[in-house]
């Protein structure tokens, strides 16, 4: 084995040897489950905002989506970016695909506070990572009104082609309650960026 691999193996073994013994893991799981059930009871109130967004998208407004958008997709939701998009950070995504929006629905990643998501349905043209098949629904932060080419438009909508990267919201398999990441990880499609994503994900 090469020296660096041996060193890595040795260092990780040394670290593992200092790990503490687990406490009452079953008890801890029980407590988390109780907290989660309390949050689920309170959750419908938090879900009202997301449902309102979905209703607005289904019945109006009548603004068309951006055509020919470039770069990051603007979306609703507060908060700062903990990690910005780059070819260095892109591989951290569990799933990534090239897809066109076909519709909207309820969020698929569950409640629990945080940003207001909508479930966005896609026809998938190409999977770069983490999925297969020609359709998927992932949660995105809701589209917002933008001014594009001097026209008011929705930042994205039915017919918008996007490059989408994200992860399972609560851990697990890539498409287990999937959420698309903001901060540049969800972008308008263009051929050059799509080629870069293909290269990054191998």
């Amino acid at each position: 084995m090469a020296d660096v691999e041996r060193t890595v193996r040795d260092e990780l073994a040394v670290l593992a040897a200092t790990a503490p013994e687990p406490g009452d893991l079953v008890g801890a799981v029980r407590r988390r489950l109780r907290r989660r059930r309390r949050a689920l009871v309170a959750g419908p109130l938090a879900g009202v905002a997301a449902v309102s967004v979905v209703v607005a998208l289904v019945t109006g407004p009548s603004l068309p989506p951006v055509v020919g958008g470039v770069g990051e997709v603007a979306a609703g939701g507060a908060g700062s970016c903990h990690e910005m998009y780059s070819t260095e950070t892109l591989p951290d995504a569990q799933f990534a695909f090239d897809g066109t929006v076909t519709g909207f629905g309820r969020p698929v990643s569950g409640g629990g506070g945080g940003p207001s998501y909508v479930g966005v349905k896609f026809t998938v043209h190409r999977w770069f990572e983490g999925g297969s098949g020609d359709a998927v629904t992932v949660d995105l932060q809701a589209p917002v009104t933008v001014v594009w080419a001097s026209e008011e438009s929705m930042s994205y909508g039915v017919g918008t082609r996007l490059l989408v990267a994200g992860a399972a919201r609560w851990g697990g398999a890539p498409l287990d309650k999937p959420v698309a990441w903001p901060c540049g990880f969800t972008r308008y499609w263009d051929a050059q960026t799509a080629a870069t994503w293909a290269q990054v994900f191998g």
């Binding site: 903990h82 990690e83 950070t89 951290d92 569990q94 992860a167 399972a168 919201r169 609560w170 851990g171 697990g172 398999a173 890539p174 990441w181």
Partner: peptide
Amino acid sequence: NAFISAGRRR
């Protein structure tokens, strides 16, 4: 996967 997801959010 939880480690990786948490690492992104930190």
